Lab assay of single mutants.
Amino acid sequence: TTVHLNGVTYTFPNPEEARKFVEKLAKTLNLKVEVHNGTYHIE
C-alpha cells in the first residue's frame, strides 16, 4: 500500500498499517485524503 504525502512516497507492506497511518496523519494535520487505486494521496 502506497501513501503519497507532499511529494514523498511511503510504502507499507500491510494495508492496515497504511490506513492507520493515514487516518492518524489526516486527523492530526486536518488534511484531505483521497484514495486512487489503493494509493492514498494526502493533501
Rank of each mutant, 00 (worst) to 15 (best):
E43H: 12
N14L: 05
K20V: 09
V22H: 01
T9H: 07
L5W: 15
L25V: 06
L31D: 01
G38Y: 03
A18T: 05
T1C: 15
G38I: 02
G7K: 07
E16G: 08
P15A: 12
E23T: 08
H41N: 05
N30E: 06
K32W: 05
K32C: 14
F12W: 03
N14C: 15
E43Y: 15
L5N: 02
E23H: 07
E16F: 11
E23A: 09
V8C: 15
L29G: 10
N14E: 05
L31R: 02
T28D: 11
A18S: 02
K20F: 08
H41T: 07
H36P: 01
E43R: 10
L29Q: 07
L25I: 09
F12I: 01
L29V: 05
E17G: 08
R19F: 08
L5E: 02
L29D: 05
K32R: 11
V22C: 14
E43D: 07
P15E: 09
G7I: 04
L31T: 04
G38W: 03
V8A: 09
Y10S: 01
P15M: 10
E43A: 09
K32T: 07
N30C: 15
V35W: 12
A18Q: 01
T2D: 11
K20S: 09
A18L: 04
L5F: 15
L25Q: 01
E43Q: 12
E16A: 10
Y40F: 08
Y10G: 00
V22P: 00
L5T: 03
K20G: 06
K20T: 09
L31G: 04
F12Q: 00
P13Q: 10
I42H: 02
E17K: 11
V33P: 01
N6C: 15
H41S: 04
R19K: 09
P13I: 11
R19D: 04
E16P: 04
K24H: 13
L31I: 14
V33A: 02
N37H: 05
Y10C: 14
T11E: 08
L25K: 01
K27H: 09
R19M: 08
A26Q: 12
V8K: 12
P13V: 10
L29W: 07
T28S: 08
K32A: 04
F12Y: 03
L25N: 01
N6V: 06
F21R: 00
N14Q: 05
K20Y: 08
P15L: 09
V22F: 03
L25C: 13
T11Q: 11
H4C: 15
E34I: 14
V3H: 01
N6H: 09
A26G: 07
I42A: 04
A26Y: 04
E43W: 15
E43N: 10
L31K: 02
E34P: 01
T28A: 09
N6Q: 07
E16W: 11
T11L: 11
E17R: 11
E34F: 14
T1N: 09
L25D: 00
E23D: 08
F21Q: 01
A18D: 00
T11W: 10
T1E: 04
R19C: 13
E17A: 13
L5K: 02
E23L: 11
V35E: 05
A18V: 06
N14I: 05
F21M: 03
Y40E: 02
Y10Q: 01
T9Q: 11
N14G: 10
T28W: 14
K20M: 11
K32F: 05
K24C: 15
E23W: 09
G7V: 03
L5D: 02
T28G: 06
N14K: 05
V3S: 00
N14P: 00
K27T: 08
V33M: 04
K32I: 09
A26I: 12
I42Q: 02
K27M: 13
F21N: 00
N37A: 04
N30K: 08
F12G: 00
N30G: 10
R19Q: 07
T11F: 11
G38H: 05
G7P: 01
L29I: 06
L31H: 03
V22T: 02
T11K: 11
H36A: 05
E16Y: 11
F21D: 00
L29H: 14
K24L: 13
A18C: 14
H36F: 09
Y40N: 02
K24P: 02
P15S: 10
K20W: 08
H4E: 07
T1L: 07
K27I: 08
Y10A: 01
N37I: 02
G7F: 07
P13M: 11
N37T: 02
N37Y: 04
H36R: 14
E16N: 09
G7S: 07
H36V: 14
A26C: 15
L31S: 03
I42M: 06
F21K: 00
L31M: 08
E43F: 15
G7N: 08
T9E: 09
V35T: 04
V35Y: 14
T39E: 15
T9W: 10
L29Y: 13
E23Q: 08
N6E: 07
V33Q: 01
T39I: 14
K24S: 11
E17V: 11
K24Q: 12
T1G: 10
E34S: 13
H36T: 06
K20P: 00
L31Y: 06
T9C: 15
K24A: 13
E17L: 14
V3K: 00
F21P: 00
I42D: 02
E43M: 14
E16S: 09
R19A: 07
H41Y: 15
N30T: 05
L5A: 04
F12E: 00
A18F: 04
V35N: 05
V33H: 01
K20R: 12
T11G: 05
Y40V: 07
E17M: 14
H41C: 15
E17Q: 12
K24G: 08
V33F: 13
V3N: 00
R19T: 05
K20C: 15
E43S: 14
L31V: 13
R19V: 06
T2S: 10
T11C: 15
V3G: 00
G38K: 02
V35I: 13
F12S: 00
K27R: 10
I42S: 03
N14D: 10
Y10I: 12
K24D: 13
T39M: 12
E34G: 04
T39D: 14
V3C: 09
T9P: 11
V22W: 03
A26D: 05
T11Y: 11
A26L: 13
G38D: 05
T9I: 14
N37G: 06
I42G: 03
E23F: 11
K32Q: 05
K24I: 13
G7W: 07
K27D: 06
Y40S: 03
G38P: 01
G7A: 05
K27L: 14
L29T: 06
T2H: 14
F21W: 13
N30S: 06
G7H: 08
H36L: 12
K27W: 09
V3Y: 02
E17Y: 10
R19W: 12
F12N: 00
H4Q: 09
Y40K: 02
N14W: 04
Y40R: 01
T11N: 09
V8T: 09
V8L: 10
R19N: 04
V3P: 00
E34L: 10
K24W: 15
N37Q: 05
H4W: 14
T28N: 11
N14H: 07
V22R: 01
T11H: 11
E34A: 08
H4T: 08
T1H: 07
H41G: 02
N30D: 07
T2Y: 13
I42C: 12
P15R: 08
V3E: 00
T1Q: 07
Y40A: 03
H41L: 09
H41K: 04
N6T: 04
H4N: 10
T39V: 15
P15V: 08
V8F: 12
Y10W: 11
N30V: 07
H41M: 08
A26R: 11
G7C: 15
T39C: 15
V35Q: 04
H36K: 13
K24M: 14
V33S: 01
P13Y: 08
E16T: 10
V33L: 05
Y40P: 03
G38F: 04
E43C: 15
K27A: 12
G38E: 03
A26E: 07
N37K: 04
E16C: 15
A26P: 02
K32D: 02
F21T: 01
G38C: 14
K32Y: 05
H36N: 06
E43L: 14
Y10H: 05
N37V: 02
N37F: 04
E16R: 09
L5C: 14
K24T: 12
V8D: 06
N30Y: 06
T9N: 06
V33N: 01
L25A: 03
T39Y: 06
P13L: 10
E17W: 12
E17C: 15
K27F: 12
L25S: 01
F21A: 02
A26M: 14
N6L: 12
P13W: 09
E34K: 09
A18W: 03
I42N: 02
Y40Q: 03
L5G: 02
L29P: 06
H4D: 05
E43K: 11
T1K: 08
T28L: 14
P15W: 09
Y40C: 12
G7Q: 06
H36S: 06
A18R: 02
E34H: 14
T1A: 10
V35L: 12
F12M: 02
Y40D: 03
F12D: 00
F12V: 00
E34C: 15
L25Y: 04
K27Q: 12
